[in-house]
Design a protein around this nucleic acid. Sequence first.
DNA 1: TAGATTGTTAATCGATTAACAATC
DNA 2: TAGATTGTTAATCGATTAACAATC
Lengths: 205, 205
Amino acid sequence: MADHSVPEIVIGRLPIYLRTLELFAKEGKTITSSQELGERLGFSSAQIRKDLSFFGEFGKQGTGYNIEYLQEQLREILKVDRVWGMALVGAGDLGHALAHYRGFEPRGFRLAAIFDNAPEKIGTRIGDLRVHAIADLPRVLREMKLKIAILAVPADVAQNIAHQLVEAGICAILNYAPLHLTVPARVKVYDIDPVVGLQGMAYYL
Amino acid sequence: MADHSVPEIVIGRLPIYLRTLELFAKEGKTITSSQELGERLGFSSAQIRKDLSFFGEFGKQGTGYNIEYLQEQLREILKVDRVWGMALVGAGDLGHALAHYRGFEPRGFRLAAIFDNAPEKIGTRIGDLRVHAIADLPRVLREMKLKIAILAVPADVAQNIAHQLVEAGICAILNYAPLHLTVPARVKVYDIDPVVGLQGMAYYL
DNA sequence: TAGATTGTTAATCGATTAACAATC
DNA sequence: TAGATTGTTAATCGATTAACAATC
């Protein structure tokens, strides 16, 4: 189960299923079906059943899926049945917004260290975290055994810092810098560039 | 050219090509090739040529692509050869970060109005924009003829506000709320949920 | 010219969906 | 039981890639 032959596009949908199950649970639902989930998300019910079938059998014929149980299973598959510490690099406006975001912890993530290179920021506190110098990246990341980093620095220094993150043992980077990072194949990168989204939509205007 | 039969997945890559061409130009390059672009981005050169071929012939055999010219063409195709005004709904931490972001304007977008429902925020200024009450959405959006909105409000009010945006004539929504919005088919939505990205990467840890 | 690279076709590859037996 | 929904197969659909003639 959950072997490496599961297509990446399937993995990418699981967090969306999980998020929607959490919403259903909050709405007081206890049971759902691939059809109901699909209608809410704009996916076909067949796709949802197929995606889940890569990992096991989680439903009951004639009834559907127990929401609580399917949430547990998806969290386990995605390895978010725990809380991952993350490094944040970049304490600008975006860095501050991320540092104050309350949505990480309930979904498996928590900021554990913040880095920036501006002398006036180093040593200050954001929430309950101290801002470290980027020179301290290797030491702090290894001490805290962090595997995930959020990159929220200007584009012109992002590739350089990405390299340092990889050197320091980071395996996954949430990249807010508006460029493609070149990293070793074993390192995962997920890009967030709002303008890419906006430009894609502008085509249809 | 540029008709509606171009796959959405192709449209989604054009902004990434454009972004990289801008980087190349900044690095002083004037010519590139599908191979060079592909190597930088991790795409095959064939894919890049095929994607571009939906819209015309922009290259020269034996030489490649003039970067300046291809940028112009992509901007025209994507309709970002102009600057689109956008409404921002939600003046929290994220809203402030977006309001201060300098990366929109050079790539075809500009915040034109900000809305929030907190009485203590209404009437205050963020940058050079006044914060309007959400009740003023229909009037202001129509007056300014805005077609694009950024939704940066808590999840529990996002669907309701999305509906108001659509009613007020919005055609494209950049959605930062962590849930799937239900909107008419003619309205485009692009979702940004950092936790979805993180959870997808956590699977591979 | 020789070398390089495009634009395009056809083949391959992979993802989605329709359909249905199994069964709750 | 009758109705509903799963998990899975096979068919369909769509996207990617390899290959190459055209040509700069």
